[in-house]
């Protein structure tokens, strides 16, 4: 599905991943790209078809290496964290552990050259609103997800531009934790190919009490509910092991 494809000079290739339509055109000395979004067709999945694209549009132009005709489109997770709410705010009693599932809209990375060594940038399949997590003086900018975190992965929308992210939360303390918002550092997550959807690696968070930082881990695997998966896109940045986030516990929310 996501294999590299050859575009000869003068030809234009079209991809559609959910609501995001992408055209890549090869001219003798340049690459051109154009992106459009159609929120009414979130399920559409069109791969590498010949299509001249919109004629009047303003294309983004890139200088090209003369013999380079190969293009590869790869899914990527947003570089900024995504911030998501559960369906309803609820309390997490001490001694419990739960897994949530979050749908993360993908970006499309456009690469050329042998092995996709040259990047023509990346385009988000969905334009997300900005959001902020934490105190106004020290918090973290991120993207707000329009969907909510779910307890059952079957409740997540299964669309080609979304990847399912399992988040495992443990509360080994005797203290009840309130859960209102969740901040996911997507740059530490990898992408896996599942049988019928894309998955990200698992995010694990351990609550350590209201005044203690939470412990965060990003193991090199996804959740068991994903079934047979194939590791595909590595994280943008390896996660620091046993990362602690102190500032967010006061906000009755947690960050992974």
């Amino acid at each position: 599905m996501w294999e590299a494809t050859t575009i000869n000079p003068g030809a234009t290739r079209h991809w559609q991943v959910g609501p995001c339509k992408l055209w890549v055109r090869r001219l003798p000395d340049e690459w051109q790209t154009y992106v459009e979004r159609d929120p009414d067709s979130p399920h559409v999945e069109v791969w590498a078809v010949d299509d001249p694209g919109p004629g009047e549009a303003t294309w983004t132009r890139f200088a090209a290496v003369r013999d380079d005709h190969q293009v590869e489109v790869r899914p990527q997770l947003p570089e900024r964290p995504v911030i998501v709410r559960p369906e309803t705010s609820f309390l997490f009693p001490g001694g419990s552990d739960l897994t949530f599932y979050v749908s993360i809209p993908l970006h499309l990375g456009i690469f050329t050259g042998p092995g996709g060594e040259r990047s023509l940038g990346e385009v988000p399949t969905v334009i997300l609103s900005n959001s902020f997590f934490g105190e106004p003086t020290t918090g973290q900018l991120g993207f707000a997800l329009k969907t909510t975190a779910r307890r059952d992965p079957a409740d997540l929308r299964q669309q080609p531009h979304l990847a399912a992210c399992p988040v495992h939360v443990r509360n080994p303390t005797g203290v009840t934790m309130a859960f209102e918002r969740l901040c996911l550092y997507t740059r530490h997550l990898a992408i896996y190919k599942g049988s019928n959807r894309l998955w990200t690696s698992l995010a694990e968070v351990t609550y350590r009490g209201p005044t203690e930082p939470q412990q965060l881990k990003y193991p090199d695997r996804t959740g068991p509910e994903a079934g047979e998966v194939e590791p595909w896109i590595p994280p943008r940045e390896p996660a620091p092991q046993g990362r602690l986030q102190r500032q967010l516990s006061a906000f009755k929310s947690f960050i992974t």
Binding site: I83, I127, L128, S129, N130, S131, F132, F133, P136, A144
Partner: peptide
Amino acid sequence: DANPYSLDEP
């Protein structure tokens, strides 16, 4: 809320 530059939180 509809403006992409406006933060949804705060």
